[in-house]
C-alpha cells in the first residue's frame, strides 16, 4: 500500500429513488493533494463526499482510509477529517468564539487552538458576534475555522463559496492557499466554479450525472480535449476566401453574416503576430480583437453539451 494515499475509493454506487447520484466511481486522494470535484448542481459531488465523510453508506463499493475500510475506523476517521457542509445553521445566539470553543472541546484542543483558527480565518473582529448576525462569507469562514480545529490531514469542503460575493470568495481562497503552503493538509473541494477549481487545486475531477468525466491538472485536461487559445476579431470589409485555406499556416474562419473572424492559436507567441501581419498585408483594418483562453466550462460544454452553471435534469 502506498503510504501517500489517504483515501482510496473503488466502484462506488449510491442510488436514490429517482437519481443515480453516484454511479460507479473510483477516487483517490494523496497526501498534500488539493483535489476539486467540479460539476454542475446535481452531479453527485455532495453524495460522493458524504460517503467519504461516513455519513452515507454506499450501495456498492469500498472506501479505504489510510488502507483501512472506512466503516471500521469511524471514531479515528473524525480525527483525520475536517469537514464543512454546504450549509450549517450554527446555534443562533451563541458567539463565534463560543461556537469555536465548543467544537474545540470535541477535539480536546486548548483555547490557544481556537485563537489560532480564529486568526487564520480572520474572525477575530467577529468573535463576540452571534452567529445569526454573520454574513454569508463570515459564516463560511466560521465553518472553515471549525473544520481546521484538529489540524485535519484531510479537509473536505462542500461548496464553501457558493452564493458568496467575489470578495468573500477570495478571502476563503486565500485561507486555503495559505494552508496549502503548509503541505500538511489534503483537500477535497466540491464546487461548480471552474475558477475556484483552477485557482486552488492541483487535480481537477469533472463530474456529471454520478460519473467522473475526466480528471487531471488544468493544462492536462485542456490538452487532452485538444482545446487551445483562440482569437476573435472584426475588420473593415470582408476577409477574402483565399485567406481561409490554411496555406498561410493559420487556421482561420470567417462568419460573413456575423462579420466576425476566428483564429486558432496553439502557440500565441508566433501565431498572433502572424495573424496581424496577414491582415495588414491584405489591407484589412482591425476594428476589434479578443484573445480567448479555453476554460473548463468550454471543456464541460464539449463533453456534455451543457454548461457548468446549468442544472442537471
Amino acid at each position: 500500500m502506498d503510504n501517500n494515499i489517504l483515501i482510496q475509493a473503488k466502484g462506488l454506487y449510491k442510488h436514490f429513488k429517482n437519481v443515480k447520484a453516484v454511479n460507479g466511481i473510483d477516487f483517490s486522494l494523496s497526501k498534500g493533494e488539493y483535489v476539486a470535484l467540479l460539476g454542475p448542481n446535481g452531479a453527485g459531488k455532495t453524495t460522493l463526499v458524504e460517503m467519504i465523510e461516513g455519513i452515507r453508506t454506499p450501495d456498492k463499493g469500498e472506501i479505504l482510509v489510510k488502507g483501512h475500510p472506512l466503516s471500521e475506523i469511524k471514531s479515528a476517521l473524525y480525527n483525520l477529517l475536517g469537514i464543512s457542509f454546504q450549509e450549517t445553521r450554527f446555534l443562533e445566539k451563541v458567539t463565534v468564539e463560543e461556537t469555536i470553543r465548543l467544537f474545540a472541546s470535541f477535539y480536546h484542543q486548548p483555547d490557544e487552538k481556537s485563537e489560532r483558527v480564529m486568526t487564520l480565518t480572520g474572525l477575530n473582529e467577529k468573535r463576540k458576534s452571534y452567529t445569526k448576525n454573520l454574513s454569508g462569507g463570515q459564516r463560511q469562514r466560521l465553518a472553515l475555522a471549525i473544520s481546521l480545529l484538529n489540524d485535519p490531514e484531510i479537509l473536505i469542503l462542500d461548496e464553501p463559496t457558493t452564493g458568496l460575493d467575489p470578495t468573500a470568495r477570495r478571502e476563503i481562497w486565500d485561507i486555503l492557499l495559505k494552508l496549502k503552503e503548509g503541505k500538511n493538509t489534503s483537500l477535497i473541494l466540491t464546487t461548480h466554479y471552474m475558477e475556484e477549481a483552477t485557482q486552488l487545486c492541483d487535480r481537477i475531477v469533472i463530474m456529471d450525472k454520478g460519473l467522473f468525466l475526466a480528471e487531471g491538472t488544468f493544462d492536462e485536461l485542456l490538452k487532452r480535449m485538444n482545446l487551445h487559445d483562440s482569437a476573435t476579431f472584426s475588420v473593415e470589409g470582408d476577409v477574402p476566401e483565399s485567406l481561409l485555406s490554411g496555406e498561410n499556416g493559420l487556421k482561420l474562419e470567417w462568419d460573413a453574416e456575423a462579420r466576425r473572424g476566428w483564429c486558432e492559436m496553439k502557440n500565441v507567441a508566433t501565431e498572433m503576430p502572424r495573424l496581424f501581419s496577414l491582415l495588414e498585408k491584405n489591407n484589412l483594418t482591425l476594428t476589434d480583437f479578443e484573445h480567448k483562453r479555453p476554460t473548463l466550462d468550454d471543456l464541460f460544454l464539449i463533453m456534455t453539451g451543457r454548461r457548468l452553471t446549468e442544472e442537471t435534469d
Partner: peptide, 14 residues
C-alpha cells in the same frame, strides 16, 4: 438542530 445540519456537524467530530 437536525433541520439546520447542526447535529450532523457535531457528530462528524470525535
Amino acid at each position: 438542530r437536525r433541520k439546520g445540519n447542526m447535529l450532523r456537524r457535531m457528530v462528524v467530530t470525535p
